[in-house]
Amino acid sequence: MLLLAVAVSGGFTGSSAVVADEPDELLTAGEASLVRVDQTYIADTLCLPDLSVRSLSTMFDTEPGGIIGADYPRTLALPNGNVLWTFQDARIRTPTGARYVHNIGIMQVGTCFSILVGGSSSSPRAWLFPDQTAPEFRWFWPLDAEMGADGQVYVFSVEMNERGDRYLARAEPGGTFVARVNPDNWNVEWYGTPANAGNDLYGWSIESDDEWTYLFAHCHRQFGFDPFFGNDAHDRSCTDRVTVGRVPLGALFEAPTYWTGSSWNPDRSRAKPVIPRSDRFSNPTQVIQKNGRWLAVTKVDDWWGTEILIESAVHPTGPYTTVERRPVSPKCAVDCNTYFSSWIEGQNSGRPNDPLIISLSHNRWDGEASYIYRPTYAVVAPPADQPTVAMRCSLGYCA
């Protein structure tokens, strides 16, 4: 995505569609009224020599399917051994020039990666919610994804609305939506809304244990809010807050209960932050469970931060303590930035001592389409095995 509103030129250029102030009726109908969507278009497939972080970092080097670059990679390891990747704001090369496709998917089968988009080779569109998208005016960015109790894949997404005079001048989240993806044929089968479809974005990060699915929230308000270095950027009233709700395992459409700091409660207004906030103005945190530990990765302070923090807790509600500080390196000295780190699943055997992989997104400050706009990947040591559930409860961490 373009990272500073001041650097973006042009206005609404991608569609002549008229976008209503309120979401479409079919999108707000919830689980009971779902809309069938078109078959996924596979733009291209590339195969890497291996799944090392060096190879993963070359994923877009040959511009498969015309993809120049993308950001915000998230992954979901599927029961069949494949891995679903989602990305925000892929730049795709077309006969008329580079264009934003506001979301794409990639299905990884072994070391091969198939690019999933909407539309066709001559007219690519967003993979998710293409008919509800008016490019650069109203669009959908993928959040995290999880397996439902029915064995289907559910990709949580945020509806974004441009309220300014150009793309990413003032981009406001409008609400949370869900797309169901068939893990066998890769088609998007319907759209709906979760029980909490608000713009606090429960589903920003999702992780499950043996009993519960946890929905972490982050407001994702980056463009057009409070001044930073002469540009209107992050909304300081919320971008340092990460809260969490939970539902029974895989029951993604049930109403969550929320962690209040001492217990779980159905009132979302009582939710308390679970990730440390001191000396941070943005916490775009992603969470996984590994070896009985809950691990949070955060590119602190987004574009202006200088390090990735790895934090660890016994329980998803914390308390989280820092176990590693990792400095980041932009791809160029002056014109480049870094942002958003996430956990990349499914790239090894899953054994307890296998290393973990994290991503880091990159771009130019002016947003020019270039090789800079491609994530890099790095290895993180796994945590040591932790005590049993009973032992953790004896220490007071079984809430």
Rank of each mutant, 00 (worst) to 15 (best):
D366P: 12
F253W: 10
I357G: 13
A333K: 09
V37W: 13
F140A: 00
W259C: 02
Q108G: 02
T213D: 12
R170Q: 15
S312Y: 00
Q289D: 05
C112L: 08
P276R: 05
P183D: 09
Y339N: 10
L46R: 12
S361V: 06
H315F: 10
D232V: 11
I68N: 00
M1S: 13
S341N: 11
F12C: 15
S16Y: 12
D184H: 06
S157A: 10
N291V: 09
P352Q: 00
F140E: 00
N353H: 11
G14N: 03
S55R: 01
D21Q: 14
F253S: 03
L78K: 04
L356M: 14
Q289H: 04
T388K: 05
S205C: 05
Q286I: 10
W212F: 15
A233G: 08
G367L: 03
W190V: 05
Y100K: 12
L295Q: 03
T322R: 11
Y373W: 03
Y41Q: 08
L84P: 01
S329L: 12
A7C: 14
F340K: 04
V18E: 15
I104Y: 07
L34F: 06
E368H: 02
Y167R: 00
V37T: 14
R280D: 06
R91H: 09
G151F: 10
V188D: 08
Y100G: 13
C238Y: 13
S329V: 14
E172G: 01
V153I: 15
